[in-house]
């Protein structure tokens, strides 16, 4: 069923873009094929204003409290959090691996920067993901054009600033075509 497009309520503070939250969890023992990925991902809902964002976010479990192999995705409304989406096909992502205990704070700082348009890269941002794993957690931010080095450099520099990470934190850029081939 087609989801209703979100609109800001009266007196609320509109965002530059509407966004949708998604949640996915890997079923143990299943291969990670495209089909099973798509069937394991659920849209939580969409929002158009700062206040609507908080209404969702305040009721969501913090990434650091998730167990098992799970992900939260926050993407612009209309973009699926998948490589195959037209907005992502030519794109890539910055990946930051986090030791356990940092995911909740880093995820919040990352999505607040995205919602508040702190990256200053025009239409380039597609969405962000936090992936909870056994040994470590991973946050990533996806953009449309992997070949645009000025954009990817600006995203990296903004990430460093808004996440306030230790200077030795490793940041890795991966194009989605690399991920597909891998």
């Amino acid at each position: 069923a087609k989801k209703k497009i979100a609109v800001p309520g009266v007196g609320e503070h509109p965002l530059q873009y509407n966004y949708s939250f998604w949640y996915s969890r890997r079923t143990p023992g299943r291969p990670a094929s495209t089909q099973s990925y798509e069937s394991n991902i659920r849209q939580i809902g969409s929002f158009a204003s700062v206040e609507q964002f908080w209404r969702f976010y305040s009721h969501m479990i913090r990434p650091g409290d998730l167990t098992g192999h799970s992900d939260f995705h926050l993407f612009k409304e209309g973009i699926k959090p998948m490589w195959e989406d037209d907005a992502n096909k030519q794109g890539g992502k910055w990946i930051i691996r986090l030791r356990k205990g940092l995911a909740s704070r880093c995820w919040e700082n990352l999505i607040l920067a995205m919602l508040g348009e702190q990256f200053m890269v025009g239409e380039e941002i597609c969405g962000a993901v936090v992936s909870v794993r056994f040994q470590e957690d991973i946050i990533s931010i996806w953009n449309k054009t992997a070949s645009d080095q000025a954009t990817t450099a600006r995203i990296r520099d903004t990430l460093r600033r808004v996440l306030n990470l230790p200077p030795n934190t490793i940041m890795e850029y991966k194009t989605h075509t690399d991920s597909i081939n891998f």
Binding site: L15, Q16, F53, W54, S58, L115, E117
Partner: peptide, 21 residues
């Protein structure tokens, strides 16, 4: 056009505004 830019503090301050409850 004009972009709608919010800093972290502005967003956090809206968290407990009556309209968000």
């Amino acid at each position: 056009g004009t972009r709608i830019i919010y800093d972290r503090k502005f967003l956090l301050d809206r968290r407990n505004s009556p309209i968000a409850q």
